[in-house]
Design a protein around this nucleic acid. Sequence first.
DNA 1: GTCTATATCTGGATAGAC
DNA 2: GTCTATCCAGATATAGAC
Lengths: 200, 200
Amino acid sequence: MARTVDPAKYAAKRQHILDCAAVLFAQQGYERTTTSQLCARAGISPGNLYHYFAGKKQVFLAVLTQDEHDTHALLDRLTQEAAPLEALISFVLHLARPATADPIVPKLVLEAMLQAHRDPEVGAELARVDDDEMRGLRVLLSRAVQAGEADPALDADDAAAWISALVSAVYLQTALAPDFDAAQQLANLTRTVRAFLREA
Amino acid sequence: MARTVDPAKYAAKRQHILDCAAVLFAQQGYERTTTSQLCARAGISPGNLYHYFAGKKQVFLAVLTQDEHDTHALLDRLTQEAAPLEALISFVLHLARPATADPIVPKLVLEAMLQAHRDPEVGAELARVDDDEMRGLRVLLSRAVQAGEADPALDADDAAAWISALVSAVYLQTALAPDFDAAQQLANLTRTVRAFLREA
DNA sequence: GTCTATATCTGGATAGAC
DNA sequence: GTCTATCCAGATATAGAC
């Protein structure tokens, strides 16, 4: 019984630090958030932070990777649905909903996007997630085209990229204009996607 | 004839500094661009920078405010056109086009957006520009509705905000995926706006 | 494991000669 | 007006006691 540490406590504290960091990074951005601020908010000493993370950047990366919504499981379900267009809409909503759920999420995502093309490590992390999204969009989109529910003149890659951009627009707008109505945002998004896919 | 300085030379050098700063801020962001880097690139000494700007932040603000495309003149023309919907589309293109013209523009705009909700001074500056855009969109949109060219069920404020978000999406996508085709982007945007405004 | 104290470095801005 | 040299603040990360 000579266990020195309680792994559960360790994990809990680590998580606590991540939660605090997420708020600060979202509010202030990565660069102007200092480790002192983080430690103060988490209620730990500056030195103690380094027992949980190798440095500030590792904290940031950990924040970004912590909640990977399992798109894979959902995607498997959706690709077998009878109504491809509705499946696509469901997927789009799944991608956009986190933006409206917690106000710090869109800010964090934007921060990550900007850091991504400045820091290769962050970029690699984001690219992985984005790839999954794009692949899912392409698959569902081509199914919708085959079923005659979307304009066959659309280029699959291009249309998927654009729909992804539309989702990003929701994140952007939610982050920058927090007073804007979340439900209305999602309604606009679905209306837009549907209209975009319809034949011209 | 005892003029000590040539005002034209002064202005030219100031502009040169701004050009250099714009590139650095776009590539690296505001925070991680140092005054030393800026001076090195501009070919001036650290001290000399402060003869042209009061500080780093003032350089950033000057970069943001330097080219205010005169939306007002265009707007006056467009509000008198016979075809309101086409006028609206023209306006949207006018707003989006800078994103595709110079690759540093969209990055700079995004950087400004993020800084805006962290620094009130930047925020005030951006809000002024955004206000003009939104006002223009609302006016043109309501004219289109009156002419029966847009869905009358749309809420003017909400729809204008959403169209503005769509424009932002072009900036976002251009900044983050520079390999993406500019013309295609604008085509997607107009198609999307048109489709969004059509009756459901 | 957690603290306090501090080393080390870097950045923005200034002083003062030329 | 422009330079060189430097100050001072603040940030990350480490050392070492408890």
